[in-house]
Simulated scan of single mutants.
Amino acid sequence: MTVGVDGFPESRAAADWAAREAVLREAPLRLVHVEDWAGVPCAPAFERLENAGPVGAEGLRRRAGAVLEEVADDVRRRYPGLPVSARRMPGRAAAVLSVQAADSQMLVLGSRGRGVVGGFLLGSVGIATVGLTVTPVVLVRPPGEPVPPPAAPVPNRDVVVGVDVRADTDPLLAFAFEEAARRGCSVRAVHGWSLPFAFSYAPQLDPGVRQEAADNVAEELSERLRPWRARYPSVKAEERVLVGAPAEQVLYEAADAGLVAVGRRIRRPPVGGHLGHVAHAVLHHATAPVAVIAHD
């Protein structure tokens, strides 16, 4: 497990969530801070910690090191049996985190508040990191209540997965079912759809058109889930075929989720990775941890 750490409280929440996941998987935890002073959000974060004015690069490095060690010490204290390592690395944050995550089960990052564009995660650095990383990336928001002690049970709320039946869904469904099996919870597969514009008036002429289209979409979703239900018979899987924008429907279903999973297509454009509008919207507005799964 790899987690990105910066000077903001959000990354501390990410570190705690990642530590719980590492314990669940019996895997070591790697904390990574990238010294990317060109990424504007990083430097002010450390300055604000001590209410100080502008400082030089060496001062920022010392403060970054102090923050990293503080987070590492806190995780070791809360999870004494968990192997924890801490790394400070120079470079562009998105590229370094992507490389560091290559041999991990997932990369965990802290996410800012709803709708906020600035900051480490939902700003350009965060979007670039998600777009460049093939390993599953999970974005975690700070909890609205105190973080429970490590031994406290965590409610096994559903894993909600947004499914595009026109895309390669196997990596996404594999992740969702495996996580549900590990947590002992259910999978809720959500597909939002609407009739093409050319058929906008068809339901008025023939009321059966919409129902027929809905049945076809439901059948396609059921077919996508069939092999995963067979592979994970202990996991209850529910289907939600809903009329409306896909992002809105996923967000609605995710309101009480323990984990939300969305996919993104792997593309290699000259300027970096690609994040679709559904994943982008869910990342910005979901309150539960959001996993972004790359697929072809």
Rank of each mutant, 00 (worst) to 15 (best):
A237L: 01
P54G: 11
P153V: 10
H33P: 09
H285K: 01
V117W: 11
V34T: 02
D36I: 12
Q105Y: 08
W228L: 09
L195K: 05
W193Y: 05
C185F: 05
A279Q: 00
V241F: 07
P196D: 05
G273M: 09
C185W: 01
P80H: 07
R183D: 03
V71T: 15
P207V: 01
R77W: 08
Y232S: 11
N216R: 15
G118S: 14
A245Q: 15
A57S: 09
Y232T: 07
A13I: 08
L109P: 13
A261L: 07
L121F: 14
G59P: 06
D170E: 13
V241H: 04
R226G: 06
V140Y: 09
A291K: 00
P9M: 02
R25V: 05
A22C: 12
A174D: 15
E239T: 15
A95P: 13
G65F: 10
R183C: 06
A247Q: 12
M1F: 05
S85T: 12
E35S: 15
V262G: 01
V160N: 09
H295P: 00
W17C: 06
A181K: 06
E47K: 13
G4P: 04
P207N: 04
G110N: 03
A19E: 07
Q249G: 10
L259F: 11
D73L: 10
Q105M: 05
W37P: 02
V278W: 02
R92P: 03
R224M: 15
P136M: 08
G39N: 14
P146L: 13
A230T: 07
E220M: 05
G59S: 11
A214R: 15
P149M: 13
S98A: 14
V130Y: 00
V260M: 03
L251Q: 05
G119S: 15
G258P: 04
V235C: 04
V161W: 01
A152D: 13
P143C: 11
L221I: 11
A14D: 01
